[in-house]
Computed example of a mutant assay.
Amino acid sequence: MFKLLGNLSVYFKYQDIRTDNALFRLHNTFTTVLLLTFSIIITASQFVGQPIQCIVSGIPAHVVNTFCWITSTFAMPDAFAREVGKEVAHPGVRNPYDGTTEKKYYTYYQWVCFVLFFQAIMCYTPKFLWDFFEGGLMRTIVMGLNVGVCKSKEKEKKKELLIGYLLRYQREHKMYALRYFGCELLCLINILVQMWLMDSFLGGEFYNYGTKVLGYSDVPQELRFDPMIYIFPRVTKCTFHKYGASGSIQTHDSLCVLPLNMVNEKTYVFLWFWYVALATLLSMLLVYRLIILFVPSIRPRLLHARSRSIAMETAASVSRRCDVGDWWLLYMLARNMDPIIYREFIAEFSKRLDEKPSSRA
């Protein structure tokens, strides 16, 4: 397992050229690795260990274990709030005195590892799309200027090539910015869709799962029952039928222990808080991007904040002459170029822009 988890470190390799922001990477890289880690741990516990152990008399234990694992187990919802040891044997476990008693069936547990893996693919999709759209443009135009130590002639030549490219293709980078903003929007949509999918997967119990866990300690001891046990029970029941010696159908009622649910409950508690935090931050990021798109007056301040080495007047002059696509390219160049080289480049680029006929941004 440690070897498998160690292979995930490739996702955290240092990138000398960044074409996205930290929140984008939290969604696409960290969350993907997080889900893959949970999937690997649960897979190892499920297929290497003993995910279920049932107690039943007269039938080989491994037969009942296999049957109850591949079919389903159940609990009695009204038995979770009853006193353990007096009214019920375990939370949610009591005898169904008649066939009309409501049962809550649990069939999801053998699918958790696969669902988590599918969620990891969904989280990686925005990064895959952005890498395809970006096509290595930022690395190409930076041309190694992210390293400040270089020969003067080489530096001047590269700066001239970069300025020439930006002047030649001025106002042709709008789709570059919009595609990136679209991938950030896709991150938010993905988080919201995944929360809905997890809620459906867990029988409508995911949306308020975290709040129930937080409120668990505030409930009086005599009235409380663990919400994690209700969604991920550790002891359930299973009914096994077989033919007796005379050919009549015999019913065997077994008690099943699910140690794997100890891992599942902690996994989904963490995912609830993580997804709520991500959804909140991505919503704020979406508002921030809308401000960038529809309030051009804020762009010079952001460019100056990104690179304090450039004058505010220069940032205002450049932002006024560029549309949102060119501005975003300059903003990302400030992140990837050496600060001193960027200051020299943006000053020269501003002068060259002033030499061109004026046009609206």
Rank of each mutant, 00 (worst) to 15 (best):
N190F: 01
I231L: 13
Y230D: 08
S217I: 06
I231H: 02
W196Q: 14
D218H: 03
S217H: 09
F225R: 04
A245R: 15
H241I: 13
T211F: 04
F232A: 03
P227F: 01
S217R: 08
V193M: 12
D199W: 02
Y243S: 10
G215D: 12
C256G: 11
M195W: 02
I249P: 02
Y216T: 02
Y243F: 14
T211I: 06
R234K: 12
C238V: 06
Q194T: 10
M198C: 06
Y209K: 01
F206Q: 00
M198Q: 06
H252C: 10
V213I: 14
D218T: 04
C238R: 03
I249T: 13
A245K: 15
P220H: 04
G244M: 08
Y207P: 00
S200Y: 12
M198I: 10
L202C: 09
L223I: 00
G204K: 04
N208V: 08
Q250L: 15
L255M: 14
V235K: 09
V219Q: 01
F240D: 05
H252G: 05
R234D: 11
Y207T: 12
V213K: 03
L192F: 08
D218R: 03
S200G: 13
I191K: 05
Q221T: 09
L197C: 11
H241S: 13
N208M: 13
L192H: 04
Y216V: 00
F206L: 01
P227R: 02
K237W: 06
C256I: 08
T239W: 09
M195K: 10
I249Q: 09
F201Y: 10
I191R: 09
H241M: 14
W196I: 15
R234T: 14
L214G: 00
S217W: 08
N190A: 11
R234I: 05
T251Q: 13
D226T: 03
G210I: 00
L214V: 06
S200I: 09
Q194H: 03
L255Q: 11
Q194Y: 02
D253I: 09
D253T: 11
D226P: 01
S217E: 07
V235G: 02
P233V: 05
P233E: 07
F240A: 12
Q194M: 13
C238G: 13
S200T: 13
L214S: 05
T211C: 00
M195L: 10
H252L: 11
V219K: 05
T251D: 08
P220L: 04
T236E: 06
D226I: 01
Q194W: 01
Y230V: 10
F201C: 04
C256T: 08
D226W: 01
V213C: 06
L255H: 05
C238S: 09
G203R: 04
I191M: 10
G215M: 10
L214K: 07
N208C: 06
G210C: 00
C238F: 05
F225Y: 13
Q250M: 15
D199V: 01
F225V: 02
T251C: 07
W196K: 14
